[in-house]
Amino acid sequence: MNLAYKIFWAFISLGVVTVWGLTLNGIVHKIFARVQGRLGPPVWQPFLDIIKNNSIRTAISHGVMFYLGPVFRIAGGIGTYMFIPVLFGSVYFSNFSMSGDVLLVMYFIFFGQLGMALGAGEGGHPYSAIAVSRGLAQMTAFEVPFALSVISLALQYKTLSITEIVAAQQGSFLNWTLFTNPLAVIAAMIAMLGMNMYNPFSLVIAPQEIPIGPPTEYQASFLGLLATNRGIFGGAKLVLFMNLYFGGATNLVELIVKTFWIYMLSVFVGAAYPRFRTEDSIRFFLKYPTALGIISVLLFSL
């Protein structure tokens, strides 16, 4: 398949994951509302919000970095997604995956957050700065068990390519990492709770004390860009977790079912639990999930 064809199909798969990620967001809002005994917004509300935000007639910029913050963020989201093979064995939905792409993806997960931190910092709002410091601290903490879990996988499968990791899990569901390396999966799933920023790790966007976190000063199409990225990045993370730990997917239906249930874990936890303070969540991440990660690394390196 030549490059132009590949780019064309990468755009199609990007569109698919954006729509699916935003729909998941809508479903999650609906679930939260039902848990609280409300009717909740319609499932397509995230799309309406994006249209509304992009149709706002004026916008205020605070400088170059402020302007580039959401751009970096969405570049991080797209970058994460572009190097993950979406469907195993499909020539159309394999994006730009290559050997060693796990490392690249892990870098891109960080990249967007750092760009956003710079942009939100130039906005000058004190709440942005508070939220950025909380967010980066928490991100550094949950990155430790996640990285340990990925190292454990690399040791287990003797590869750094996502496609090969997925290939090694084919055959039966008993070959999934979930069953062959459960400690690493538990550590990574706890890290994903922090990544998705639902309760108990939602202090970064704490809607009551520091209004909506880093994007306090962002408005109009900046916010539309950030909301679109929430779909892309959320979808990309779910596809990555599905590939690494749950055997990947061979068709779109399997992908939708698996990512939905992976997401539901953080939603169920988020709907049921209260919130950690930043230092508590850091302490938590550096305690049990990190210990599990270290044990699983030791098991496969010995």
Binding site: H29, G40, P42, Q45, Q208, I212
Partner: peptide, 11 residues
């Protein structure tokens, strides 16, 4: 429940 109308409070 105004959220069913697509409204939400924004701080």
């Amino acid at each position: 429940d105004i959220s069913r109308l697509g409204m939400q409070p924004r701080p």
